[in-house]
């Protein structure tokens, strides 16, 4: 793995994390999360890539095999990302159905107004 390619995948992770924190649209946040996950998979691929590797199936001596560990980890990562993305899309749909907006700030304000209307103090505000 060259350092340049690793730096590129880390850069994509950084870009995705900044989007995850700074974007106010919930769908954009989910998109950034997806970008982070894809960049992580890219990093795993770059960690083990060496030219001339064979798929690690069957073990014959004298053949250079690829590392099986990151492949298993990437399987985990893909399935978890699928589940997390589906669940957060569901929560986003619930929020949109209730507040009719995707903006986090507006949702927060509406929740605070609801709390004040009920006479409860807005617990741990932001």
């Amino acid at each position: 793995m060259s350092d340049f390619t690793a730096a590129i995948s880390i850069l994509i992770v950084v870009v995705g994390s900044i989007g995850l924190i700074l974007k106010k649209n919930l769908l954009m946040k989910l998109l950034s999360l997806s970008i982070v996950n894809t960049a992580t998979i890219l990093f795993f691929v770059l960690v083990v890539y060496t030219p001339g590797d064979r798929a690690p199936i069957g073990a014959y001596p004298g053949i250079q095999y690829a590392d099986p560990l990151p492949q298993a980890l990437v399987l985990t990562s893909i399935v978890i990302n699928f589940g997390v993305l589906a669940l957060s899309l569901l929560f986003t749909m619930v929020l949109v159905k209730r507040y009719h907006t995707l903006d986090v700030k507006k949702i927060e304000e509406l929740v605070r107004k609801e709390f004040e209307a009920e006479g409860r103090p807005a617990s741990h505000g932001d």
């Binding site: 199936i57 590392d67 099986p68 985990t76």
Partner: peptide, 26 residues
């Protein structure tokens, strides 16, 4: 470099029924 992966490849050889090393890991 790549010591853990080589370790799993080597240990996978000792299993009788598994020839797919990725399945051996997960």
């Amino acid at each position: 470099g790549l010591r853990i992966g080589q370790l799993y490849l080597k240990r996978g050889l000792e299993l009788d029924n598994v020839s797919n090393a990725v399945f051996g890991v997960y």
